[in-house]
């Protein structure tokens, strides 16, 4: 008889069974690693200008060419990863905190359900990008405000998933038992319900990470996001627009970085969802 494995180990084993998921995890690890190690692995300094060699096509010295100030595009893409990935991660944290609170209250406290859910319906009635730029128009463009705006934009998605899971959980016997023992609402939500919400939160968080990177890039592109002096993938593409005729390689590195990161995150998110879905487990 084999030793029973912990749910976590089982999940990881099930996740790693699919090669495409493993490959995507490797890509994410590579991009995150490159972002963290940018000051050491980047071939040049992020603001080092070399006007003589401006707008040079990709060569062995500059793998992705140089921009209008003669800055190395690969270097700036690596530094851009630091900002774009941090924004994505912070948005996931903020939206998860707000959305979990909202979803738990709506799902567990029946009196609040209708009001809180109509509120999330109303928030979801705005297209993501429109709500984000409207918030940023008021708050002003800055890294912190982009995180705040996108955190608010993605809160309803978390809230809906958490509420749905809470509605199922609250009917289960362990919650009933805790209620019978006289546990307070706060205790039931934090000690008994919250730990059971971790898996749907991780799945949702992975997708929000991907969406946040895409939306942040679009916001920066529109000039309403992270100020243009900070290299983010969106800002690099926005800044290269006018040089497209002379230097079409400028948008390649940041564009591919966005596509690769978002694609890998979505594949991992799908893989996680399949691995956590009890319906699919029976089929496997």
């Amino acid at each position: 008889m084999t030793k029973p494995r912990s749910p976590g180990a089982l999940l990881i084993a099930r996740l790693l069974r699919r090669r495409i998921v493993v490959a995507s995890l490797a890509v994410i690890a590579l991009i995150v690693g490159a972002a963290i190690l940018a000051p050491w692995v980047a071939p040049y300094g992020p603001t080092k200008m070399d006007i003589v060699h401006r707008l040079k096509p990709p060569v062995s010295l500059h793998w992705f060419g140089t921009d209008d100030f003669g800055r190395d595009v690969l270097t700036r893409t690596l530094y851009g990863a630091r900002v774009s990935l941090s924004v994505g991660l912070m948005v996931v944290v903020l939206a998860s905190l707000l959305g979990t609170a909202l979803g738990l209250f709506a799902g567990y406290i029946r009196k609040l359900d209708a009001a809180l859910m109509r509120f999330t319906d109303a928030l979801m009635a705005f297209p993501d990008i429109l709500l984000a730029i409207a918030l940023l128009a008021g708050l002003g463009p800055s890294l912190f405000n982009v995180v705040l705006a996108l955190g608010i934009v993605y809160t309803p998605r978390v809230a809906r998933v958490v509420r749905g899971a809470t509605l199922v959980l609250r009917e289960l016997q362990f919650v009933e038992a805790a209620e019978a023992l006289g546990a307070s609402d706060a205790r039931i939500m934090l000690v008994h319900l919250l730990p059971n919400l971790v898996s749907p939160l991780i799945v949702q968080g992975t997708f929000i990470f991907a969406y946040a990177i895409l939306t942040e890039a679009a916001l920066s592109f529109l000039g309403a996001g992270v100020p243009p002096t900070t290299p983010t993938w969106g800002n690099m593409i926005a800044g290269s627009q006018q040089y497209m005729n002379q230097a079409d390689w400028l948008i390649m590195a940041p564009g591919l970085a966005i596509v690769l990161t978002v694609l890998s995150l979505q594949i991992v998110g799908d893989g996680l969802r399949d691995a956590l879905d009890p319906k699919l487990q029976r089929l496997m």
Binding site: A217, M244, I251, I258, I267
Partner: peptide, 22 residues
């Protein structure tokens, strides 16, 4: 379809303009 969902539409737009229009 997963790849399509990962494309930033402004990046696709700029690329289409450059190659098919310009």
């Amino acid at each position: 379809s997963m790849l399509a969902a990962s494309l930033p539409s402004f990046w696709v737009g700029l690329t289409l303009i450059e190659y098919l229009a310009v």
